[in-house]
């Protein structure tokens, strides 16, 4: 299949990209990894008239950790995360996701920020972004602004990035040593969108009670959801089987999936709870802790 015609521009800086987007309006798109956009263009479901390629923006290709934060630029690929020792050691959730997002070849091209901006309701990264309480820096012609995950995710395929804007950096808080995380995804095969998935990040106090919890679920609603009620249940508590069941139930309760080839709505609703439970259990295991009876 062959995309419809478009004009092609290369941007060498965020300023240049934003200016090109401003110039060409609603039918212009940023081309980062292109792993969602190009297939959509091949099907002619997407027919942008202008593409602004940012792949040669060398300055956007960075992963840096400082002052308790991880900063990632717009051209960082999923594979950069997958193969990064820093990520594997310090960012368990991100590491888990970067192993299962798309397929290994697509990961060499797809970008983290691109995935977040695409905001597919079944995408992996938005759920992780919620659980990790990450932020996004958005640039427009007047400057930059920071939005947190909950504000960033607006609607299916729609984020806080407005026309003429570009997401330039995502910031992920560095988890403390007492933090365990896990990404639990059911997919029909490698490369598939999630049937349902859950991102869990738990920070424990010395006594084993939960200091902070982050839970994001995906593919079970029109956007990735934060299981806020579940997080609240966990805070300050020792993690018991019954508590896990209650948190899982919260996830299932708020899930509002549609039936499709990946499964019935009832199944997705139920199984996302199971995934949240498994995510909590694995997070604890990774901290060398067990679920209390």
């Amino acid at each position: 299949m062959f995309p419809a015609s478009f004009d092609f521009y290369r941007a060498h800086s965020a300023e240049e990209a934003v200016s090109l987007l401003g110039e060409h309006g609603a039918d212009s798109r940023i081309l980062a990894g292109g792993q969602s956009l190009i297939p959509a263009m091949r099907y002619r479901l997407a027919q942008p008239t202008v593409l602004v390629d940012i792949n040669q923006m060398q300055a956007a290709n960075y992963i840096t950790e400082e002052n308790g934060e991880l900063r990632i630029g717009a051209t960082v690929r999923d594979s950069d995360l997958e193969f990064s020792d820093l990520i594997r050691t310090n960012y368990q959730l991100m590491s888990d996701v970067s192993d299962v997002v798309a397929d290994p070849i697509v990961r060499f091209r797809g970008t983290l920020i691109g995935s977040l901006c695409h905001n597919d309701p079944s995408g992996d990264w938005p759920a992780a972004m919620l659980a990790a309480r990450a932020k996004m820096i958005i640039q427009n012609k007047d400057g930059k602004r920071v939005v947190n995950a909950d504000e960033f995710i607006v609607d299916s395929f729609t984020t806080a990035v407005e026309e003429g804007e570009m997401a330039v950096e995502t910031i992920w808080p560095t988890p403390s040593k007492n933090t365990g995380a896990s990404y639990q995804k059911i997919e029909r095969k490698v490369g598939d969108y999630a049937t349902a998935a859950a991102a869990v990040q738990l920070e424990l106090n010395e006594d084993g009670t939960v200091k902070e919890a982050g839970i994001g679920i995906t593919a079970v609603s029109y956007v990735a959801l934060r299981v806020a009620e579940g997080e609240a249940l966990l805070r300050g508590q020792k993690v018991t089987r019954n508590l896990i069941k209650a948190v899982a139930a919260e996830a299932s309760k708020m899930a509002d999936p549609i039936a499709d080839g990946r499964g019935s709505a009832e199944y997705k609703k139920e199984v996302v709870g199971v995934l949240v439970a498994k995510g909590i259990m694995q997070s604890l295991e990774r901290l060398g802790r067990k679920v209390e009876a």
């Binding site: 959509a40 997407a46 027919q47 695409h118 395929f157």
Partner: peptide, 8 residues
């Protein structure tokens, strides 16, 4: 119509 990348 426009839904994310799907526009036409």
């Amino acid at each position: 119509v426009g839904v994310g990348p799907v526009r036409g």
